[in-house]
Lab assay of single mutants.
Amino acid sequence: ATNIVSKVKWYNSTKNFGFIEQDNGGKDVFVHKSAVDAAGLHSLEEGQDVIFDLEEKQGKAYAVNLRIK
């Protein structure tokens, strides 16, 4: 899926990962520091509106092509 609009559930800049809620009630989506860095960001804030693409690797959903709404 591409261009999903949602909100950051939480992000831990010390552990370099977090999760984004899915508005459709699906499972929370993992977001890694590499996606945050690629977006030119230093961190994410809880409740922040984001747009991302969903990529599945080894049966897990990852946020990629992250951008701020």
Rank of each mutant, 00 (worst) to 15 (best):
V8R: 00
L66D: 01
N24D: 11
E46I: 14
K33G: 10
N3S: 09
V29K: 01
D37C: 14
K9W: 02
S34L: 11
L66W: 00
E55G: 06
D53T: 06
I51E: 09
W10Q: 02
G47H: 07
Q58V: 08
N16I: 02
N16C: 13
K27C: 10
E45W: 15
G26H: 10
R67Y: 05
E56A: 09
K33V: 08
F52R: 00
D49T: 15
I68G: 06
T2A: 10
A1R: 14
V8C: 04
K69V: 15
A61S: 13
I4Q: 09
G47Y: 05
K9Y: 03
K7I: 08
K9R: 09
H32E: 03
A38L: 10
S6F: 06
V64C: 07
Q48H: 05
G40A: 06
E45I: 14
E46T: 15
S43Y: 13
K69Y: 14
S13I: 12
R67D: 04
V36S: 00
E21W: 15
K15G: 05
Q48F: 06
V50M: 05
I20K: 01
V64R: 07
F17G: 02
G25S: 09
D28F: 04
Y62R: 08
A38Y: 08
N16E: 09
V5M: 11
V64Q: 05
L54A: 03
D49I: 15
A35F: 04
V50L: 10
A61H: 12
D23E: 13
L66E: 02
Y62D: 03
V36C: 04
D23H: 15
W10D: 01
G47I: 02
G26V: 09
E46F: 11
S13E: 10
N65V: 03
I20V: 06
F52H: 03
V31N: 01
H42N: 12
F19M: 05
D37P: 01
H42D: 12
F19P: 01
F17R: 00
S6D: 02
N24C: 12
G59K: 05
N65H: 09
E55C: 14
Y11V: 03
A63R: 00
I20E: 01
K33A: 10
L44N: 01
I51L: 09
W10L: 03
E45A: 12
F52I: 06
E55R: 12
I4R: 10
D28R: 04
A39L: 08
Y11F: 09
E45T: 13
S34E: 07
H32A: 05
N65I: 03
V5D: 06
V50K: 00
N24M: 10
K69C: 14
D28H: 06
N24G: 12
F52S: 01
I4M: 10
K69P: 15
F17L: 02
N3P: 07
S43T: 14
T14V: 13
G25W: 08
Y62E: 06
A39E: 02
K27V: 10
S13H: 12
A1N: 13
T2S: 10
A39Q: 03
K69I: 15
D28A: 05
V8K: 00
Q48C: 09
K7R: 12
V8I: 09
I4N: 08
E56Y: 15
Q22L: 13
L44Y: 00
G25I: 08
E56S: 11
H32N: 05
K69S: 13
D37G: 08
E45F: 15
V50F: 03
E46L: 10
G40I: 04
V5R: 12
G25K: 09
L66T: 00
S34R: 10
G26S: 11
K33L: 05
S13C: 12
G59A: 05
G47E: 04
Q22D: 11
F17H: 05
H32M: 05
T2V: 13
A35V: 09
D28C: 07
A61I: 15
Q22A: 15
Q58D: 15
G59S: 05
N65E: 03
A39C: 05
V50Q: 01
E55Q: 11
K9G: 03
V29F: 10
L41G: 04
S6I: 04
N12D: 11
H42V: 13
A39F: 03
H32Q: 03
K27Y: 10
L66N: 00
N16G: 15
